Amino acid sequence: MTEWQQLTIYIGESDHWHHQPLYMALVELARKQGLAGATATRAIAGFGKHSTIHTTKILELSSDLPILVTIIDREEAIATFLPQVQEMVTDGLVTLYPVEIVHHVPNLER
């Protein structure tokens, strides 16, 4: 049985890679490498290593909201992708968990 993993990358909205938002660079790289899927989620509030709270409150719009990039794929595909993530993420947190896939219907038309 193939093992699946969830790679979650915690970065800031203002983080960039080669003049592009880092979250988009990661999503595009995952697509280019044929990973099963990637999702970038913008958080409504959070804080990191400096304990500064970033929030979407109307009166204090933050320019650096937390972004989570989540990628789920087979262990081998994640292992191939991870070194590039480690190069690209210079300020953030990267986590990796085993996941149990209970339903997956890939688009075979691609």
Results as ranks from 00 to 15, higher is better:
residue 1 M to K: 15
residue 2 T to D: 13
residue 4 W to Y: 15
residue 5 Q to D: 08
residue 6 Q to N: 11
residue 6 Q to Y: 03
residue 7 L to G: 08
residue 8 T to I: 10
residue 8 T to E: 14
residue 10 Y to Q: 09
residue 10 Y to S: 07
residue 10 Y to R: 06
residue 10 Y to D: 10
residue 11 I to F: 06
residue 11 I to N: 02
residue 12 G to I: 03
residue 12 G to E: 08
residue 12 G to L: 08
residue 16 H to P: 00
residue 18 H to E: 14
residue 20 Q to L: 11
residue 21 P to E: 07
residue 25 A to T: 07
residue 25 A to V: 06
residue 26 L to G: 01
residue 29 L to T: 14
residue 31 R to D: 10
residue 32 K to G: 03
residue 33 Q to M: 14
residue 34 G to I: 12
residue 35 L to E: 06
residue 35 L to P: 05
residue 37 G to K: 05
residue 38 A to F: 01
residue 39 T to V: 15
residue 42 R to L: 14
residue 42 R to Y: 13
residue 43 A to L: 15
residue 49 K to T: 13
residue 50 H to S: 15
residue 57 K to A: 15
residue 57 K to G: 11
residue 58 I to P: 04
residue 60 E to I: 10
residue 61 L to Y: 07
residue 63 S to H: 13
residue 63 S to I: 12
residue 64 D to Q: 10
residue 64 D to F: 02
residue 65 L to Q: 09
residue 65 L to A: 10
residue 65 L to V: 12
residue 66 P to Q: 07
residue 69 V to H: 03
residue 71 I to K: 06
residue 71 I to Y: 02
residue 71 I to D: 02
residue 72 I to M: 13
residue 73 D to P: 04
residue 73 D to C: 05
residue 74 R to L: 03
residue 74 R to N: 03
residue 76 E to I: 12
residue 77 A to C: 07
residue 81 F to L: 09
residue 85 V to N: 04
residue 85 V to Y: 02
residue 85 V to Q: 03
residue 87 E to R: 14
residue 87 E to Q: 15
residue 87 E to D: 14
residue 89 V to M: 08
residue 91 D to A: 14
residue 91 D to M: 11
residue 91 D to Q: 14
residue 94 V to L: 04
residue 95 T to S: 11
residue 95 T to N: 02
residue 96 L to K: 02
residue 97 Y to R: 14
residue 98 P to V: 09
residue 98 P to M: 07
residue 99 V to D: 08
residue 100 E to A: 07
residue 101 I to F: 04
residue 102 V to G: 01
residue 102 V to L: 12
residue 103 H to P: 00
residue 103 H to R: 01
residue 104 H to V: 00
residue 105 V to D: 02
residue 110 R to L: 01
